[in-house]
Amino acid sequence: MKPTWPLLALTLLQGLSVGLAGIAAVLLVMGHQQGPMVFADQSVALVTGGIGGLSSIFHMHRLAGAKYVLRQLKTSWLSREALSTGVYMLMVALTVLAHLLAPPATGLWQVLSVLAAILGIAAVYITSMLYATIRAMRSWHSPLTVLVFFGASALSGELWAWAIAGIMHRSPRGLEGALWVLLTIMAVLKALQVRNFREAEHTVMSSTGTGLAQKPYRVMDTGTTKPPYRHQTQIWPMLTSTQKFGGYGAMAAGIWIIPVITLLTGSGLMADLFTAVAGSLGLIVERWMFFGDATHSSRVWFADEPKRSSQVVR
């Protein structure tokens, strides 16, 4: 489908915010005495989550209907997303306020921090389920979508917590080890998801007979079925092999290759910042490809399908 910037901003910044709030809660619970750093993490979580929430407004093309957005909590994951992200942001704001206003000894800050992290995890789960439950979007209809959303959230939070620790000249125990673990988990999940995307693309093809009782068939362009599908945003002109190679290559370079090289060879503030920026850019490309490379079941009725030769002939 067509990637749009409000969706990229909402999902990425919500994930980053929850990742940072989660790491802040873990640091507090483990008693690492990193008060200023935890507070910095939570403040960045508040700002990024707020920007993400605001960008979702631009995803609505008719604001007059926005007052009805919580009407269908019983069935709609989008209604639930609006509610859960709002409640999470409220809790993060309260957490930051509690640190500023309440005496540290009361424990209120700690309790609110843990609550914010739990609500954040729920918000990411709900956002990812919005995509994973769409049966017609064959690439997304998988538990992997949920796992990759959690992986991206944890990794982006970890990368920025790493950078914030560098800026504040702190090195909390376990942060570097966690980064290595998350990079590995995310690599495995993303590899499986890209495999899923290729499987979906291969399954939804007119030449396999998908969509009709008779097969195989070819859809002829009659003038109303050609790209760029301005009125049908659920599909998009199929990415070329070069675009896919470039997209997934840039994603791999940003998320894994550059951060791993920097972690192995460099140290200091600049290296930490470089790792966070490269990783974040990689995650932006990852999310862009998540939307841009997705296959919708209605693709079989549009005439941009390339002619394919046998994939198994020798």
Binding site: H59, M60, R62, L78, A136, T233, Q234, H296, S297
Partner: peptide, 11 residues
């Protein structure tokens, strides 16, 4: 609200 989620959901 023009969120287009129904367009993704329609097979």
């Amino acid at each position: 609200i023009g969120c287009q989620l129904c367009m993704w959901a329609c097979p």
